Amino acid sequence: MKHLLMLPIVLTLVISSSLAETAAHSHAERHQHQIPDEFVPKEPGQGAFASVQEIVELLLSDPQTNWERVDLEALRIHLADMDNVTLHSNVAMESVVDGARFTVTSKQDTVRQSIKNMVLAHSLEMSGTFGWTLSAEGIPEGAVLTVTGPTEDASKIKGLGFIGVMTLGMHHQSHHLAIARGENPH
């Protein structure tokens, strides 16, 4: 009789143990097997972080990476400059013959410095692209960028506006890699 009274307790322990083992096995299986790509998020959540992540992957996969020169902090600062110029500056456009002049300013010191860093470097890098002339000068509040080209491109320059002109050339990606590798792309 005593054994019969123990039977429900033993059965409960056996079933609980079996369920726990099945749950643990199922959990381990989920982690051992790759989740299909269509169910894995692709966006890391923030643009600058995504840029750094992409560069880190490239550096890790390149056996020629000189880790003594890698400078991801310089890239982070550059990306902060890009963010400041894109989101926190004020732009006034003025028509000029065959193009436009963009006065880019801010009341914040850090944004002013970002404007100078980005606009002056971009004008040097991109002048001549599409047959356009880009010239820039620093001013106390930021920078002035003048973009001119063939007469037939004047409306395109104005339509692109400051931020559109800043995106031209697809040089940013290689530029970011050069910064991260400790090179001076300017």
Rank of each mutant, 00 (worst) to 15 (best):
E137P: 09
A74K: 15
N84W: 07
A92S: 15
T103E: 02
L75V: 05
N84V: 05
E125C: 10
G45Q: 07
T146N: 06
V97D: 08
F130A: 00
S123L: 02
D83L: 12
Q64I: 15
A136E: 03
E54K: 14
I35A: 05
I55D: 00
V91E: 00
V144G: 05
V85P: 06
T86N: 12
L59K: 06
R69L: 09
H88F: 11
S127R: 04
D109H: 12
M118R: 15
G47M: 10
L87M: 13
H33F: 08
L75W: 07
K107L: 04
D109R: 15
S123W: 03
I139V: 10
T86V: 10
T105C: 01
E73Y: 15
A80W: 13
Q46W: 15
P63F: 02
N90Y: 11
Q34I: 09
T105F: 01
N117S: 04
L87W: 14
I77G: 04
F49C: 09
F39Q: 12
A154F: 03
V91C: 01
E73M: 11
R69S: 13
T105H: 00
D37L: 15
D98C: 06
H78T: 11
N84E: 09
G149A: 00
V104A: 03
K156R: 14
R76A: 08
S89C: 03
P44A: 09
K42P: 14
V96K: 06
T151L: 13
L79K: 09
L79I: 04
K116L: 02
K107W: 10
H78C: 11
L79P: 00
H88Q: 06
S89K: 10
R69P: 07
T133I: 05
A28P: 14
S123H: 09
Q113C: 13
S155Y: 15
A121E: 02
